[in-house]
């Protein structure tokens, strides 16, 4: 009986859950209409879609920058529509790690300060510096720890971005085409490190890319143009 309850509860605990989600900008046309999408906790999901399929909007919604116009959006079992803008910002800072395609680092800060950038906006954590050291070691960037961001190669910069996204041990990591500016060698290195970190922390990974050859690293592939009804019409 207890086991059964736990199982049910667990199956309900999804990382991202969309129900009849619709979004349009103020007085603009509908950009997103997703009847259903469910991403389980610790799942690695590969999302692809040509430009104009609502990718930016989707990512801004999931990370709590935007709020749905209609329908439900649950991230880590939290209905973001119920939270104020400020609370969504805090929620993002605490639970979501975000990796950009490029310009992941503040150029005038050191690597260490970049990894710890989020500390300026959230409650301080005594162990965070130690963890930053550890992550820098794991991601082969500790040699550059006190250098300025601009002194690093693109491959190194993306690894710093990865460290910054993972510093809070987030439950959800969103990577928005993180490898599109890297060459093959750096792409493979980045993917291997990311997957290695996933194996350790088991966060939910939402990875957006045009490069379909990367899909092999993931549990599931989602084509955004197939689930967004605005595009398919």
């Amino acid at each position: 009986m207890g086991d059964d309850w736990r199982k049910r509860k667990r199956s309900k605990m999804s990382a991202i859950q969309l129900n009849h989600l619709k979004f349009h900008y103020t007085q603009g046309p509908l950009v997103l209409d997703i009847p259903e999408l469910k991403i389980e906790q610790s799942e690695k999901v590969f999302i692809h879609g040509p430009s104009g399929t609502g990718k930016s909007t989707f990512l801004n919604l999931v990370s709590g920058i935007l709020s749905p116009s209609q329908g439900d959006l649950l991230v880590l079992n939290q209905n973001l529509a119920n939270l104020s803008a400020g609370a969504r910002d805090q929620f993002r800072g605490k639970n979501i790690g975000y990796i950009f395609q490029s310009f992941n680092l503040i150029p005038y800060l050191t690597i260490k300060d970049n990894i710890l950038l989020g500390q300026h906006f959230r409650k301080s954590d005594f162990n965070i510096e130690h963890r930053a050291d550890q992550l820098a070691k794991d991601l082969n960037i500790s040699a550059h720890y006190n250098k300025k961001a601009t002194q690093l190669s693109l491959g190194q910069q993306q690894r710093v971005a990865c460290a910054r996204a993972l510093i809070q041990k987030p439950q959800l990591v969103i990577a928005d085409e993180p490898t599109s500016s890297l060459d093959d060698k750096n792409t493979i290195e980045f993917m291997n490190l990311l997957i290695k970190e996933w194996e350790e922390l088991k966060f939910t990974l939402v990875f957006v890319s045009h490069d379909l050859t990367l899909a092999r690293y993931f549990d599931r592939t989602i084509a955004l143009e197939e689930i967004n009804k605005v595009v398919s019409i």
């Binding site: 990370s63 920058i65 803008a85 400020g86 910002d89 805090q90 993002r92 800072g93 605490k94 975000y98 950009f100 310009f103 992941n104 680092l105 503040i106 950038l117 989020g118 300026h120 906006f121 959230r122 910054r164």
Partner: peptide
């Protein structure tokens, strides 16, 4: 603009 997006990604609000 990109700096701002970065700040927001790590939890900064528009008020920050």
């Amino acid at each position: 603009r990109r700096e701002m997006a970065l700040f927001r990604a790590v939890g900064a609000g528009t008020f920050h």
